[in-house]
Every structure is written in structure tokens, then in C-alpha cells.
Design a protein around this nucleic acid. Structure first.
Lengths: 217, 217
DNA sequence: ATATATTTTTAGTCAAGACTAAAAATAGGG
DNA sequence: CCCTATTTTTAGTCTTGACTAAAAATATAT
């Protein structure tokens, strides 16, 4: 059985592992989890003892199959609860994170799977992130970042990578939501900002914003 | 902010306080919570420091107004989640306890209150226990124990006091559920067993069982 | 009323998980 | 290739919440 703290480390390694790196560094985990490298070293040894992680001193960490499945289950729970909060309890997409962060640690296989069924087996959470199935798998996402599109192309806003409430509130303010049709009108070479056509108006978004918006076509 | 452990102590004192006693004994709490008296002493001091409990050495513990409200909120959450599990996630009444025991510690006022609304503001959980409102209050229950009825009187099964899965499974096996009409047919003086008419058949229940069944009329 | 039994508290440990400061290993630049 | 900067680990502490064993207070019984 995994503790709450172990689950948070597994999740951090899981997410960091997704973005390329074969082995994740102690410091990267510490930063993600807002703790210190020394604490990470301790915990990572424990995960290795439990056969949840591969760990070689000074060489970084990666998940074992067991560890990856455990992490995926936490992510699955997190995202299913987010759907529940938005669809059934009138939460908005910028309010769900902290609560889902707690709910993801509730231990009951029946609970997760019944919740999944109750929600109609959703494939994505309110931010467009994919929901892993019981075995930790999900269909590879094919959405593409705005910065990689051609001028004139359009698509549907399918994923926002940053789920912080500051960013989501920015999107709310600009009337941008998942499912909206967006058209790329112009790239500005000076600062990499992008002019886009939203469902209500034309707006200029900075590179930092554009980096977090993914469209499906 | 209360910790998970503090909340469990508050809940124990709250429940023990309901059954009469003005001040609850260290040993009683230890037994309820399956810990040791010495651990209870430590925690109770902490609760007193936080103004959640009144505590006099060797004299027992009681809750302050703040403590009682905090405890009632935990109970409120526990019972609301039980309703959700049974009504929406296909849990049966003997499966909900362990999961609700975890869910009751999720911290989010919005979550509790939205859940309450989603469920249609239920007044009782699946075992017939009353659900406290936001302020910790609930209508006094007027159901009466089977052992206090007259022969020939009947009522609706409104509350089962023991919510352990062993007991609930016994009731399932005998086809007894909340809302069923039950008639008292005979009291046996030798062992205080009771013959009752259920919706399907006549059965004899032991004193131990009868003690836990409450009818409303 | 005093001796004994029971309950409660105190004192001292322990494990989990986090931290700081210092030591060790690795990486990078000249 | 060596010297320095950075990263990672180790060693030692701290806090929370629990425990055991011993001491202190209270309750009970003759």
C-alpha cells in the first residue's frame, strides 16, 4: 500500500517522465513537489525498496511498471474527480485542482471505477488532459501547439497545458474555453506573439500563452 | 486547520458525548478509536490548546462550541458521501463505511455544500443517521427502539445503530432494509428475543439485534 | 478509613517525512 | 586534463502521532 506522500512522488516522476527524460533528476522532482533535494533522495530510496522506482545514485530515477501503474491510477483518479466537480458540482475549471489533489488519494478501486461509469467513461478532464483507463493507458493525444501551426489554419481548443488558476482565469477573462474554434491569423516575429480569431473577437496572445494552447483539427 | 488525526478524535468525542456523558473518559476514546489511553491524553491536550476541547486532568473531555462544530462538519461529510455512494455509485449500505471514513476528511466547504445540493439536501444517511446541516444542527430523531414498543405495535425501520458490515449483512440476509414496515409480535422473557413480522416473513431476532433497530411510527 | 484495583498521566521511544548543513560525486570550461 | 560550479547524497535534527512502562490519581471494597 502506498502512502499519500509516496503517491505524490510517484505522480511527480510520472509527469516529469512524460516530458522526454528517461531518468528524472532529484532536483527536478524537488522543484515540482516544492520540497528539497535531500528529502527526494530519501523518498526515492523508499520507492526503490518497494519496487516502484529504479534508482541509481547520482543517475536519476525512473518508474518500474508497478510504479507507473500506481502513478497512472492516481492521475486517473485526479482527472475523474475533476470531471465530476465540473459536471455535477458546479465547480469551474480553475477551482478544481486543490480539491482533486486531495480526492486523488482516496483508496477504493470500486469507487474509481463506479465514478468512471457514473460520469459516462470520459476520456479527458476539464483541461483537455487524457484520463488513463484501469490499466493506466490512454489514447495518444494528437492535438498540436498553436506555435506549430500555419497562418490561416484553424482548429478546436483541445488542451491547455498549464492548469494553474491564474492561467485559467486569464482564459476565462478572454472568453476562451475548451471546444472553441480558433483560427491563427498572424505570427509576430519580434516577440513570438500570435494574433488569433476567437469565437467572439480577434486577440493577440503572448508566446507564454500560446505555448499552453493546443488545438485539434 | 485540523489534521486528519485531530478530526478522528473530535468525531469520537462527539459520538461518545451524544450518548449521555457530560465528560468523556480517556479510555472510552481510546477504545472507540482503537488506540491507547496515553495517546489520547496527548491529543486531547492538543485539542484543548486549539480551543476545540475542554480538558481537566483525570476528569475527562468535552467539546467546545468550535470543537463540536468541527466534529459535526466531519460527520456531515461522512454521511453525505455515504448517500452519494449508495444513490449514485451502486454501493450497498454495508460497503460505504471505509470509503466514507476517508472522504470525510476532504477539505472544501464548496465541495460539501455542492454535494449536499446535488443529492437534494438529504436528511438521513443510508443507515438512518441524521445529516447535520452547515451549522451542525439536525432535527431530533423521534424513532424508538424495538425493545421499548408494545406487542402489536408497528412502524417503519428508520435507523440501524450499528453500521458495521457484519450487522448490515445480517440484515440483508434477513431481507430487512430501511423503510420496511415491521410489526412486533412477541417478546420472549427468557432471553429478551423478539418475534417480528417483516415484509416477507416472521422472524425471531436476538436482544443484541433488537437493540440496534429503531422504528418511526 | 485504609488497602487495593482501576484509570489516567508522565516519561521516554519510535517511525515517517521533512529540513539544514556538510561532504561527495558529476559536469563544464579553460 | 584539471579546477570549479553544480548537483546529489549523507548525517544529524525536528515534528507529528503513536507506543510501552512506570508513576500518580481516583475509585472501590472490606
Amino acid at each position: 500500500m502506498t502512502t499519500l506522500s509516496e503517491e505524490n512522488y510517484l505522480k511527480a516522476i510520472y509527469h516529469l517522465g512524460k516530458q522526454g527524460a528517461v531518468a528524472v533528476s532529484t532536483n527536478a522532482i524537488a522543484e515540482k513537489i516544492e520540497s528539497k533535494a535531500s528529502s527526494v533522495t530519501d523518498m526515492v530510496k523508499k520507492l526503490a525498496d518497494k519496487n516502484l522506482a529504479h534508482y541509481i545514485k547520482y543517475q536519476g530515477v525512473s518508474l518500474t511498471n508497478d510504479g507507473r501503474l500506481a502513478a497512472a491510477l492516481v492521475v486517473r483518479k485526479h482527472r475523474l474527480w475533476e470531471v465530476f466537480l465540473v459536471e455535477n458540482l458546479n465547480f469551474s475549471w480553475d477551482e478544481v485542482h486543490d480539491v482533486a489533489e486531495q480526492l486523488e488519494h482516496i483508496k477504493s478501486l470500486k469507487l474509481v471505477n463506479e465514478l468512471d461509469a457514473f460520469l459516462g467513461f470520459p476520456t479527458h478532464d476539464p483541461h483537455g488532459d487524457p484520463i488513463p483507463d484501469k490499466d493506466g493507458n490512454y489514447a495518444p493525444t494528437k492535438s498540436i501547439n498553436i506555435l506549430e501551426l500555419e497562418v490561416g489554419s484553424e482548429g478546436v481548443l483541445a488542451l491547455v497545458k498549464d492548469s494553474s488558476d491564474v492561467f485559467l482565469k486569464y482564459l476565462n477573462k478572454n472568453n476562451l474555453a475548451l471546444g472553441d474554434v480558433i483560427k491563427v491569423l498572424e505570427f509576430e516575429p519580434f516577440d513570438d506573439s500570435v494574433t488569433i480569431q476567437t469565437k467572439t473577437k480577434e486577440i493577440i496572445i503572448s508566446k507564454e500563452v500560446a505555448k499552453n494552447l493546443y488545438l485539434s483539427q
